[in-house]
Nucleic acid binder design. Structure first.
Lengths: 348, 348
DNA sequence: AATCACCGTGAACGCGCGTTTACAATTCTA
DNA sequence: TAGAATTGTAAACGCGCGTTCACGGTGATT
């Protein structure tokens, strides 16, 4: 069933069918109705590839999750699925607008090219890239070619420095404000000895959260001991090792700010195994507010990242930019929120 | 940059370029090499739409998550993301084979058509459908049109009854065996009064798990009290209501088998809030082994669903079927596994 | 009645590539 | 050496649809 068949059945030319489908104004109501009836009756949908080839949009956006994680073949492993809710939200939002989503997991440097390919070869209308800042060259290329996209967890400075013009939305949350809120909360409880379990310094949020920690403590005139600055790399395993080292060899801080929830949960486990009580012996805070955060005992006090809103914003901006012929670089920092639960108390 | 440009740059005709790209044998090694060099140098990739239009595969599969959940606009909500790891795994496996994945969330009956559309209009090579059995009509249509696909969480009987021929893979896990294992484990601990918190009866796994519960208890000659059969609908909220009702008005069983982990976690919370100790006062088991299961206190004894393997199988089968010109209906039931943790003990 | 402006429509071309066909160039057979 | 068999290549057509352009028809204006 192609448009030619519809034309014949409706007694018009193929051009007219095309005009009806694409909502041209210069087709009389009667003709339009007649054609529409045939289209409905035969459930006709124009072939997408042909439309695209003839210059139309694909109504498809690409979602690229650039991950540092290893691909694994293990049967059942808890992958770092931090971004899963983000993926879900993007798909929902796009589908609600009649847009398809082509999802790509990207693991290796070699595959960065796939981002560009998706634009050139598959003609996606726009992209949403959750990255590690390492694929910035490809991103810059894409922008230079005039394709619109949203990037998540990228330094806006780096983007602005690298990309001069194009249709780009940089979407982050106020990581620094989140850390500020959590530390000021701890200080309000009476804490002064505040440690940190930091994330990956080669990610944007990893750096921002760490730097905010130093800045806020500085501002209040507290300087943490060197051994309270733990490098957790955002990973449970590494975090556990660092915390264990601290427990065995160091003087404990009265509070430990963790740069994500995964590490906070890991820290809690290690500390509890070492016969320490939380929050009595040491207060723990997380970041992200992933699902298990509210389920563990004690429930984790953390900073909520508006991942769902960020996904919606990413889609909305991308759809807006598809419509615009030109544009510039817009930056959005969505608000983080302190979620107080049970993992913090005043220092002993 | 199109194939014509490559042809000119390589000093051959466009047909020769096409033959090189599509690995025809009747092109001399020297010519092939020359063309390949130009292709490499200019990072040429044939336009996908044009290829498809000319009759090639799209190298794209569709992933359809048909959900009963409501679409929501709330800022930050913990959606039922049970299938998120499945989505991740499908994308990984497909990408590893150079296949793109078009993901669709389907919420309303009206949108069931989108499954068929994706095949007809977007020319996806195959589909993977996680369904609710309600869209069986559309599925049957797709099979009748000769398109290959995998379905997850579908009764193979229903499929076989409805679909006579086509390239179809039905992929499930041994839900019944899982329930058997968990109940026999409880019995081995000394339990006889075993209740159930059931799931949705209009889903395949919901029915199978419930029926297995009745069957196994029957087999051992234990008949549960009517009030121990709780209808949880797979949902935390409903589960909490049911458990609360039981606590307030009924005689408690010594063990409660929950048909998914979400409900088990909810049950634990309600019971603990009612000053009951787990597992001392009542044993709880779950199903699925979602991430939080191992993190809560007490850690949840549950049945592990090999979601990751199921996703891989779904992709592998679909890729195999794309290659095959004809085929029939294959059924796979992947093994579930009992994971013993801390939420069960002998009855008091 | 003749001219003009306007509107609806169909023919024709192009999108980029796969594939068939026909033809030229080469090698092999008698 | 003439003819046949084989090989490499280019030209031409088709995939299904969007869009331009030119044509014919209508009603209004002079």
């Amino acid at each position: 069933m192609k448009s030619e068949d519809i034309a014949r059945l409706a007694g018009v030319s193929r051009s007219t069918v095309s005009r009806v489908i694409n909502n041209y104004k210069n087709v009389p109501e009667e003709t339009r109705k007649k054609v529409m009836e045939v289209i409905e009756r035969y459930h006709f949908h124009p072939n997408n590839s042909a439309r695209v080839l003839a210059g139309k949009k694909t109504d498809t956006i690409g979602l690229f999750i650039v991950s540092i994680a290893e691909r694994t073949n293990e049967n059942h492993i808890y992958r770092n699925n931090y971004f899963s809710p983000f993926v879900d939200a993007v798909i929902d939002r796009a589908n609600a607008n009649g847009i398809y989503v082509l999802v790509n997991s990207i693991y290796t440097v070699k595959d960065y090219e796939k981002i560009k390919q998706a634009f050139v070869e598959r003609r996606i209308d726009a992209g949403i890239i959750v990255g590690t800042e390492k694929e910035i060259d490809v991103i810059a290329d894409v922008a230079a070619m005039g394709y619109p996209f949203s990037v998540i967890d990228y330094s806006s400075e780096k983007i602005l420095q690298r990309i001069k013009k194009g249709r780009v939305a940089v979407i982050n949350c106020t990581d620094d404000e989140g850390i500020r809120k959590v530390i000021e909360y701890l200080i309000s409880l009476g804490h002064r000895d505040i440690g940190i379990l930091s994330g990956r310094m080669n990610t944007y949020s990893g750096r921002v959260r760490y730097e905010a920690y130093r800045e806020v403590l500085d501002e209040y005139g507290f300087s943490p001991m060197e051994e309270w600055v733990l490098k957790g790399e955002f990973i449970k395993k590494t975090a556990a090792q660092e915390v264990l080292k601290l427990v065995n060899h160091g003087k404990l801080p009265t509070a430990l700010v963790c740069c994500n929830d995964d590490m906070a949960l890991s820290a809690i486990e290690v500390l509890q195994n070492s016969r320490l009580n939380i929050p009595e012996d040491i207060s723990i805070t997380g970041f992200d507010d992933i699902m298990p955060a509210s389920l563990v005992k004690p429930a984790l006090t953390t900073v909520r990242v508006p991942l769902y809103s960020m996904a919606q914003k990413a889609v909305d901006e991308v759809l807006r930019m598809i419509g615009a012929t030109s544009g510039n670089i817009n930056i959005f920092n969505l608000e983080t929120e302190l979620v107080v639960r049970d993992s913090c108390a005043g220092p002993h």
